[in-house]
Structures are given as C-alpha cells and as structure tokens.
Amino acid sequence: MWVSILHHNRYVILILALFVIVSNSMAEGNPERGKQLFATCVACHGEKGAGNIQFKAPSIAGQESWYLRTQLMNFRKGVRGTSPLDTSGLTMRPMALTLPDEQAVEDVIAYIKTFPIVAHQPTLKGDAQHGKALFAVCQTCHGPNAQGNESLHAPKLSGLPDWYIVQQLKKFKAGIRGTHPQDQWGQTMRPMALTLQTEQDMKDVAAYILSLSGQAETISTE
C-alpha cells in the first residue's frame, strides 16, 4: 500500500513539475519569433515601433511589457476596438487577432522590447506650463514624470506622441474607451479624462507630458 502511495505521489510531483516548466516557457517571449509575427504590424507602427500619425498608430517602442500585453489581450477579447466610433481601434483589433495564442503575444512583446526609444516632436500647440498644473491629477497614478505604475495599471505616458495622448483622452471622454464592463482600469481612467474641460486642456497636458520624455524611470514589478 505504501509503495503504491509513494509511486502515486511521485507521479503527481512529476506532473506538477512539468506544468511549471511549460508555464514558464509560455511566459517567456522569443524575440526572433516575435520579429516574424511583427511583420503584420510594420505597415502601421513602423519597423521599429515609432508609430505613424497618418494611420493613427501610436509609438509602441519603449512601452512597458505589462501594458502591451494588457492592451493586446483587450483587443483580442473585444474589450477594446469594438465601438463603431473607434475607427483606429476597429483597425487594430483584427491585427491583434492574427496572433494565434498568448505565446505569440509574448513573442511580439519580446521583439518590441528590443526597439530603441523614440523622441517625438510636437505636432500640436499646447501650453506645457498650464498642462503641468492640470497633470497634478494624473500624476497620482501615472507618476510625476509620467513614468507609469504597474501596481495601479497606469501606463507609461512619457514617450508617447502628443496627438495620440489627445486622441485617447477624447475617446475616454466620449465613452468610446473605458466603458466596457471588463475594462476595470479603463473605467478608472474615464473620470480622470472628464476633469479636462476643453480640447485645449488636453493639448496642454499632452505638451507637458511630451516635455517629460527622457525623465521617466518606469515603475514596474517585472
């Protein structure tokens, strides 16, 4: 009887060990495989993830892995990119669905993390000093240098182009983003966007965030 129990326990331990090995291998992305998968993304985001204003595709170079993962999964699940008013999101969702599984998502992220950080030039007229005052509300989650905070699910904003920041603030205000019942952190963001009364306020905040580029040290639990 004891021999039988011992063999059974060894079998259970072996299965658990194999499960841990498989789980760890799934969690680690392969940038070489990611490079092949990223070929679909190049047309809009560029070869090095610098983004393209014409396609409303943001810069993804320098963004944190956890946030890239969250948003790719949101697009795949339909949490983001399903509103008929979200034209760029509707374009992005089919692209996210070309990734066959979560391992592919990890591989693409691993490749994106090899890109150099991009320095963006202003495309909008904003008052950075006024934006600094308005950003006082935002820094509670996003940090004083817009470096982001994974524990609060607040992404890094430093390094994003100003036009994209304004575009997303508009979407949050209009309810195009941040209203899906499964988008817990988007729902947290929407009331913050509503504190900005005018489009010029958004441009001012974006101008201030753009001025912070290069000052951010990202807070991450990775």
Rank of each mutant, 00 (worst) to 15 (best):
W2H: 15
V3N: 06
L6C: 12
H7V: 13
H8I: 12
H8M: 12
N9R: 14
R10K: 11
I13H: 07
L14V: 10
I15D: 00
L16S: 15
A17K: 03
V22S: 13
V22Y: 13
S23T: 13
S23D: 12
S25A: 12
M26K: 10
A27E: 14
E28W: 11
G29P: 08
K35F: 09
K35A: 15
Q36M: 11
Q36F: 05
F38V: 04
V42K: 08
V42R: 07
A43T: 14
C44L: 09
C44V: 13
H45E: 06
H45S: 01
K48G: 00
A50S: 14
I53Q: 15
Q54T: 14
Q54E: 15
A57M: 03
A57N: 08
P58R: 00
A61S: 13
Q63A: 10
Q63E: 10
Y67F: 14
L68E: 01
L68Q: 07
L68D: 02
L68M: 07
Q71K: 07
M73P: 01
N74R: 14
F75Y: 15
G78F: 08
G78E: 10
V79R: 05
V79F: 09
G81K: 02
G81V: 06
T82N: 08
S83W: 04
S83L: 08
D86M: 07
T87F: 12
T87M: 11
T87C: 09
S88W: 10
G89R: 06
T91E: 14
M92R: 01
P94R: 05
A96W: 02
L99I: 05
D101W: 06
D101V: 07
E102Y: 05
D107P: 06
V108M: 06
V108I: 09
Y111H: 12
Y111P: 03
Y111T: 05
K113W: 00
P116G: 07
V118C: 01
A119R: 14
H120K: 08
Q121I: 10
T123S: 13
T123V: 11
D127W: 07
A128N: 07
H130M: 09
K132P: 00
L134E: 02
F135D: 00
C141D: 05
H142G: 08
P144F: 05
P144I: 06
Q147V: 02
G148T: 04
S151D: 14
P155R: 00
S158W: 04
L160D: 02
P161V: 00
I165Y: 00
V166W: 00
Q168C: 03
Q168L: 11
K170S: 12
F172K: 06
F172A: 10
A174Y: 02
R177M: 09
H180R: 06
Q184D: 13
G186Y: 03
T195V: 11
T195I: 10
L196Q: 02
L196T: 01
T198H: 10
E199G: 09
E199M: 10
D201P: 03
K203T: 00
V205F: 05
A206M: 04
A207T: 03
L212G: 03
G214K: 03
A216C: 03
A216Y: 00
A216V: 02
T218C: 08
E222M: 11
